[in-house]
Amino acid sequence: MQFKLIINGKTLKGEITLEAVDAAEAEKKFKQYANDNGIDGEWTYDDATKTFTVTE
């Protein structure tokens, strides 16, 4: 399945997509990506659109 991450950071904004088996795997990958890029914020997930959002 394809999942999307919307980044609303203080210095980094944008979207990325990835393939994952389920939402838990996608969340783990997205949070690792955010951590690697210094993004720390409030996370939400919309199951209907398979979209994660992180807002700093």
Rank of each mutant, 00 (worst) to 15 (best):
M1L: 13
M1P: 13
M1T: 10
M1W: 07
Q2Y: 15
Q2V: 15
Q2M: 14
Q2E: 05
F3W: 15
F3I: 02
F3A: 01
F3N: 00
F3Y: 04
F3E: 00
F3H: 03
F3T: 01
F3S: 01
K4N: 09
K4Q: 08
K4W: 14
K4G: 07
K4P: 00
K4S: 08
L5W: 02
L5T: 01
L5E: 00
L5H: 00
L5N: 01
L5Q: 00
L5A: 03
I6E: 07
I6G: 02
I6C: 04
I6Y: 08
I6F: 10
I6P: 00
I7D: 01
I7M: 10
I7Q: 02
I7R: 01
N8E: 09
N8W: 04
N8M: 15
N8V: 04
N8H: 10
N8A: 11
N8P: 03
G9A: 14
G9K: 05
G9C: 03
G9F: 12
G9V: 05
K10P: 03
K10G: 09
K10E: 05
K10W: 05
K10I: 08
K10D: 06
K10A: 13
K10N: 13
K10H: 11
T11I: 10
T11M: 08
T11K: 05
T11V: 14
T11P: 05
T11W: 06
L12C: 04
L12K: 13
L12D: 09
L12Y: 13
L12T: 08
L12R: 08
L12V: 12
L12S: 09
L12E: 07
K13S: 06
K13D: 05
K13R: 10
K13C: 04
K13E: 07
K13N: 15
G14R: 15
G14V: 12
G14Y: 10
G14D: 05
G14H: 08
G14N: 04
G14T: 10
G14L: 14
E15W: 12
E15I: 07
E15P: 07
E15L: 13
E15H: 15
E15R: 07
I16A: 06
I16S: 06
I16Q: 11
I16Y: 15
I16M: 13
I16P: 01
T17H: 13
T17G: 08
T17F: 14
T17K: 07
T17A: 12
L18H: 10
L18F: 13
L18W: 15
L18V: 15
L18C: 04
L18N: 04
L18K: 07
L18Y: 11
E19W: 07
E19T: 15
E19M: 12
E19N: 04
A20E: 13
A20C: 04
A20S: 07
A20G: 06
A20Y: 04
A20R: 02
V21R: 06
V21K: 08
V21L: 07
V21Y: 14
V21M: 13
V21F: 15
V21I: 14
V21C: 06
D22I: 03
D22H: 14
D22S: 15
D22K: 03
D22T: 14
D22A: 04
A23I: 12
A23M: 10
A23R: 15
A23N: 07
A23Y: 15
A23W: 12
A23T: 13
A23C: 04
A24Y: 08
A24Q: 12
A24F: 10
A24S: 08
A24K: 12
A24M: 09
A24W: 13
E25L: 05
E25N: 09
E25P: 01
E25Q: 09
A26R: 00
A26S: 02
A26E: 00
A26C: 03
A26Q: 00
E27F: 10
E27R: 08
E27L: 15
E27M: 10
E27W: 10
E27H: 09
E27D: 14
K28N: 09
K28V: 15
K28Q: 15
K28W: 12
K28T: 11
K28C: 04
K29Q: 10
K29P: 01
K29E: 04
F30P: 00
F30D: 00
F30M: 09
F30C: 03
F30I: 03
F30V: 09
F30Q: 00
K31I: 07
K31F: 05
K31A: 05
K31T: 07
K31G: 04
K31S: 05
K31M: 09
Q32D: 11
Q32M: 11
Q32F: 12
Q32L: 14
Q32W: 04
Q32Y: 06
Q32T: 06
Q32S: 15
Q32I: 14
Q32G: 12
Y33K: 03
Y33V: 12
Y33E: 02
A34E: 01
A34S: 07
A34T: 09
A34W: 04
A34I: 06
A34C: 03
A34K: 01
A34N: 02
A34P: 00
A34F: 04
N35C: 04
N35T: 11
N35D: 14
N35G: 08
D36H: 14
D36A: 09
D36E: 10
D36F: 10
D36P: 02
D36M: 13
N37M: 14
N37C: 03
N37P: 01
N37T: 09
N37Y: 12
G38Q: 13
G38P: 02
G38N: 10
G38D: 04
G38A: 13
G38T: 06
G38H: 07
G38K: 14
I39W: 06
I39G: 01
I39T: 03
I39H: 03
I39A: 03
D40C: 08
D40V: 09
D40F: 12
D40Q: 09
G41K: 01
G41A: 02
G41W: 08
G41P: 01
G41E: 01
G41C: 02
G41D: 01
G41L: 02
G41V: 02
G41T: 01
E42P: 04
E42R: 15
E42N: 08
E42S: 04
E42K: 09
E42V: 15
E42C: 06
E42I: 09
W43G: 00
W43I: 04
W43R: 00
W43K: 00
W43D: 00
W43H: 01
W43S: 01
W43M: 05
T44G: 15
T44Q: 13
T44V: 15
T44S: 07
T44P: 00
T44R: 12
Y45S: 02
Y45P: 00
Y45C: 02
Y45E: 01
Y45G: 00
Y45T: 01
Y45A: 01
D46R: 03
D46V: 14
D46S: 09
D46K: 06
D46Y: 10
D47V: 11
D47T: 06
D47K: 12
D47E: 06
D47P: 15
D47F: 08
D47S: 15
D47M: 11
A48T: 14
A48E: 10
A48H: 05
A48W: 10
A48G: 10
A48K: 13
A48C: 05
A48V: 11
T49L: 13
T49Y: 11
K50F: 09
K50C: 03
K50H: 11
K50P: 01
K50L: 14
K50T: 07
K50M: 07
K50E: 03
K50S: 12
T51I: 08
T51S: 11
T51Q: 07
T51Y: 04
T51A: 03
T51K: 04
T51M: 09
T51F: 04
F52W: 07
F52D: 00
F52P: 00
T53H: 11
T53N: 04
T53M: 08
T53Y: 11
T53D: 03
T53P: 00
V54Q: 01
V54K: 01
V54P: 00
V54N: 01
V54M: 05
T55D: 13
T55Y: 05
T55I: 11
T55A: 11
T55N: 10
E56F: 12
E56W: 09
E56G: 05
E56C: 04
E56T: 06
E56P: 11
E56S: 14
